[in-house]
């Protein structure tokens, strides 16, 4: 049962992820990306990380992708805008980033090839809201606070750039 769900959701996630980049309609791309995120959330639940799964849906699928949609709709792209004449200026940069991502993926796959320990040493609160919260505010307090500072700086930057005349 669990294996069947895993195979099904993985397939959905991979196919949807491919469709994000393989077809040209940006709105459809967003919808496929949302599908990928929801499938990933189910995979997270199977990994006993329910809190991460729900955050994945709330933050990525429910908030960030809606903003993407919003921007795409406001830009009002026509069909010819995403035709063949895409500017190729950024091609070298794109290839470099893709290489970095590819290497990173290979490293992660290589690391996960070690036979995994079955979840014997999982505590009762593993992956729950209480467990994750406690870890965030004790063991990982400094990284957590640094991340929030980073987010505030990013927001401030956006406000400064958008409201120059204010």
């Amino acid at each position: 049962m669990e294996l069947a769900i895993f195979i099904l959701t993985s397939l959905v996630a991979i196919v949807a992820a491919l469709l994000v980049i393989l077809q040209r309609n940006p709105i459809a791309s967003v919808m496929y990306l949302v599908t990928t995120f929801v499938a990933q959330a189910i995979l997270f639940i199977q990994l006993r990380a329910a809190f991460i799964a729900i955050l994945q849906v709330i933050v990525y699928a429910g908030a960030i992708m809606v903003l993407f949609l919003f921007v795409i709709m406001l830009l009002n792209l026509r069909r010819e805008d995403f035709g063949k004449d895409i500017k190729l200026r950024f091609k070298p940069l794109a290839i470099a980033f893709a290489m970095v991502l590819l290497i990173e993926t290979l490293v992660v796959i290589n690391a996960s090839l070690v036979p995994a320990q079955p979840g014997a040493d999982l505590s009762a609160t593993f992956g729950s809201v209480q467990g994750v919260g406690k870890e965030l505010f004790t063991t990982y307090l400094y990284p957590f606070e640094l991340t929030s500072v980073l987010l505030i700086v990013a927001i401030l930057g956006a406000v400064v750039m958008a409201k120059k005349k204010l």
Binding site: M31, V57, A61
Partner: peptide, 19 residues
């Protein structure tokens, strides 16, 4: 156990239909 979060997560998806 995360029922309240589940409701919020599903509610956050409901905007897609309208958009």
């Amino acid at each position: 156990d995360n029922g309240l979060l589940f409701i919020l997560a599903v509610a956050s998806l409901s905007v897609y239909g309208i958009v």
